[in-house]
């Protein structure tokens, strides 16, 4: 079973439909999940508060090596902390999430993703494909950068660490290209 973590704000119907996962915030489900998708929308602090009851379970499961796909805030919470607000990130990847500066602070719209590493989740998707972004914060480059995107200079738009994938863009909003990525994750083993 793929657990799609419910943070109470994001719409998860596309992800549910494409991956066949189960939308849940239930400890029992997370403990038994074979894969986890964490599609965060909202703020760093809000999301961490919302999932606090299952926080330790989530961290245990992610560290256990099952495939994890963090989308947007689901990527950011893997880090230690964020400039967006208080809250202790999962600390699985070191570093602090930063706010864009010197550019429009909401990086919103379709932008291209350049693959640095060939990842299974990007199989069949041409390099430099467009994905939909909507965020004001970005994760630091602390050695796990797998994808990058040019927004007045390249930032980390995707990370990979063992079975942990984190992407800053929204595959569920990126048309057919995004659906392909979700399907790829769905068939990962």
């Amino acid at each position: 079973m793929i657990a799609i973590i419910d943070t109470g704000t994001a719409n998860l119907s596309t992800i549910e439909r494409v991956t066949g996962g189960k939308i849940t915030s239930n400890q029992y489900d997370i403990e038994r999940a074979e894969k986890i998708i964490f599609p965060g929308v909202g703020s760093f602090t809000y999301v961490l508060e919302t999932i606090n009851p299952v926080r330790d379970t989530l961290i245990d499961r992610i560290r256990s090596g099952i495939p994890y796909l963090g989308i947007c805030l689901g990527l950011e919470i893997l880090f230690d902390s964020s400039e967006e607000g208080p809250g202790k990130g999962f600390g699985i990847i070191p570093g602090r999430v930063r706010k864009f500066s010197g550019v429009k602070t909401t990086h919103m719209g379709w932008n291209q993703v350049r693959n640095i590493i060939d990842l299974p989740i990007m199989q069949g998707i041409p390099d430099n494909s467009f994905f939909y972004f909507m965020h004001s914060y970005y994760v630091p480059d602390t050695g796990y950068r797998a994808m990058e995107t040019d927004y007045m200079g390249y930032f980390t738009s995707g990370i990979a660490y063992e079975n942990i994938y984190g992407i800053q863009f929204h595959p569920e909003k990126s048309g057919d290209t995004g659906i392909r990525l979700l399907k790829n994750f769905g068939v990962l083993s």
């Binding site: 119907s13 596309t14 048309g175």
Partner: peptide
């Protein structure tokens, strides 16, 4: 909104 969300995958 639910119908749109289930049928299209752009913002």
């Amino acid at each position: 909104v639910k119908r749109v969300a289930s049928e299209i995958s752009i913002p």
